[in-house]
Every structure is written in C-alpha cells, then in structure tokens.
Simulated scan of single mutants.
Amino acid sequence: MGGSESITWGARIREQPLLFVAIIAGVLLALDLIARLAGIEIPLTGSRTFGGTLTFGRFRGLIWNGIVVGLIFGLAGIGLSMTYSILNFANFSHGDLVTTGAFTGWGAALLVAGWGTADTGYLLLVRSGSGENVNEIGASIVEAPLGILLGVAVAAVATVIVAVAIDRLVYKPMRGRGGISLLIASIGAALALRYVIQLVYDGTNRGVTSTRDVDAEILSLSVDLHEASLVIVAVGLMLGMHLMLQRTKLGKAMRAMADNKDLALVTGIPTERVVTATWVIGGALAGISGYLYVLERGTIEFNLGWFLLLFIFAAVILGGIGSIYGAIAGGFVIGFVHEVSLIWIPSDFNAAAAFVIMILVLLYRPQGIFGGVTTA
C-alpha cells in the first residue's frame, strides 16, 4: 500500500513538477507564518529575512477580511455557476449585473437615508454631481437601517428585471446556437449595460456610506457593523439556496435540467420556467452581492462589476464549473488567499496570488474542488 502510494506521488511529481514546487513553497510559507506569529526573525540575504513580526490581531483581521471578500465572490458566483450549468454558456454580462444591483440598491438606500437633507435626483443617482457629503446623508446600518435593508430588496428586484430583459431580448432568440455564440453575445450585452450605467450614473468614483459610528465592540472585539451585516445577509442567502435546491420542486427541476436538459424536457419539466427562475435567482444574488460589496467597501464606480468578474470566474472555476457549492467554496479560497497573501506581498500583487492558487489547485484537480457535481 505504502509502496504504491509512493510510486503514484513520484509519477505525479515527474508529470507535474510545478505541483512539487508549490507544495514546498506552501510548507515554507506555513513555517514563515508560524515564525512571524512567534516573533522569530532569521536574517537571510540583504534585507530579506525568514519570519519577522506579525501580531495576532492583524492576522485575525486578514482572515476576517478573507471571509468577507470570499462571501462576495461566492454569492456572486452562484448565479454565474447556475447560468453555466443550466444554460451552458459563460455569461460575461454577470459582472455588470453586479454593478446594476450596486447602483440601483444604493440609489434607494440613499433616498431613504437622506430624505429631506438632499436633492432627490442627487440621491437616486447615487451622489452623481455635487451635493451633500456621505456623513450628512447618513446612509449606514446604524443611522438608516431601514434604508440599508430596502436597498438590498431594490438591488435584487432591479437586477432581476435587467437580467430577464437581457435574456428575452438577446439570449432566448439565440438558444440552440451553441455556447460560443451566446458567450460573444454576453460580451456585447455586458458592454452595452456597462455604458448605460455610466450614462445614467456618470463615471466618477464616489463614496456612498456614512463612516460615523459603524464600529462596535462585540465580545471584546472591534467589529465593523457593515461587514457584519454583509456576513449575515450573505450566509442567510446561501443557506436559503441550499434549502431551495434540496427541498423544493424548483430545486429538483434545476438539478435535473443541469444533469440532462433533453431528459428533463421529456419527463415533463417546464424547462422555460426553469430558465426564467435561473435568471431570477442568479440576477437577484448578483445584484445583492454588488450592493453588499459597496456596503463593505464604501465607494462605488460604474466598472465595479467588471473588476470583480475575473475573481468571480476564478471562484467558479476553482470550485468546479456548474456546482453552486463549488462556487461558494471557491469564493472562500480566492477571498482568503487575496487577503492573507498581504502578509508576504504588496497589495498591488495580491490579486495575482489568488489566480496563481487557482492555477495550482487546477493542476492537481482539473475538475475543481466540487468537480463533476452540477448545480448542487
């Protein structure tokens, strides 16, 4: 048994030497992290050292940030994974659906939070132009909880309307023409939607959330209430997706259609209704993820979703294309690496670190973490 396992690993190392290098690098990074937490520093060459100083508080903060960012990637990735598994094409307009939810949701949140303190158009257009600053408007979970919650609902509804409209106008007439045609059409839809957003809301990067009194002490820990709200909403939606997939007729129909669309049609499953439900659920989750990302980030811009799209795709590919649970797991991995890698590299390179991990994992497991599992 032991001998056969050694031969197998030897063969893998010969076939994939980069995998062996990655394992060694992972072990060295783990040892370096332990040394940093212990305050041990060993000089190497020049100014380089092994180990160093890393407070437990900063390490805990990076892990928390990784969880928060991972939830965003995972939540947005669910809709992208559903689209691929049920409709069989990579939807490049998904990132701009994320942006749609961010702007429409925050337009509603600012309108409620700043009612009577600023011009209605200025609030609905998410502070486009000049006017009252974010602290005067007071859009935060502390100062305007009703507005923040309303923004979640509006982000979902508005994005669903846009997603279904794009499907009816662009994708539905092209079904059956193959994934490449739909992929190219989705790129065109993405560009059109992005510049409509820029035309309506303008292209400036501006703040939207109030920074007053959003930190609180919970169990002797300093917690950002916006981040805590993001975690609660995102985890609740993920649990809801699990229950829907496993315990409802719609969920079973989605899984059946993802496994075999022709067989699902023969057995009487209303495939067109399932497709519509896919756009409704995927669009709602995409819009809410964009809204929550801005809640945590504090600023908004018209190409926000485009910048996130590569991370969302990375999460879906890493988790296993077509698997909702894989999208969630992949989101956590990408988010964790994106933040924790800051221990060793500057922030300008942490995005590259996340993609390197994706490549390394796929070298060992090409089908992804949950590869072979469709929809669920």
Rank of each mutant, 00 (worst) to 15 (best):
M1G: 12
E5P: 07
G10E: 06
A11M: 13
R12W: 12
L18M: 11
A25S: 12
V27F: 06
L29F: 12
I34M: 10
I34C: 06
I34N: 05
R36Q: 13
R36N: 08
A38E: 11
E41H: 14
L44H: 07
T49K: 06
F50H: 00
T55G: 14
F56S: 14
G57D: 13
R58T: 15
G61N: 15
W64I: 13
V68T: 13
V69F: 11
G70M: 03
I72L: 13
G77A: 08
L80E: 02
M82Y: 01
T83W: 08
S93V: 14
H94Y: 00
D96I: 14
T99E: 02
T100C: 14
T104K: 06
G105R: 09
A109K: 03
V112L: 08
G114P: 04
Y122N: 03
L123R: 00
G129S: 07
S130R: 08
N133T: 09
V142S: 07
E143S: 14
A144M: 02
L146H: 04
G147T: 01
I148P: 00
V152S: 07
V162H: 07
A165D: 12
K172P: 08
M174L: 15
S181E: 09
G188H: 07
E217D: 15
S220Y: 11
V223I: 12
D224Q: 10
H226C: 05
A228D: 13
L230S: 05
I232S: 14
V233H: 03
A234R: 04
A234F: 13
L239N: 09
L239F: 13
M241I: 15
H242T: 13
H242W: 15
R247C: 10
A258W: 00
D262M: 06
R273Y: 13
T276S: 14
A277M: 14
T278Y: 03
G283T: 13
G287F: 03
I288T: 01
S289K: 02
S289V: 06
S289P: 05
G290N: 05
Y291N: 08
L292V: 08
L292T: 00
E296T: 11
I300P: 00
I300H: 01
L310E: 09
V316R: 05
G331L: 02
H338F: 11
I343V: 15
I343L: 08
W344R: 05
D348V: 09
A352S: 11
A352L: 15
A354K: 00
V356P: 04
V356K: 01
I359F: 12
L360Q: 03
P366L: 02
Q367R: 08
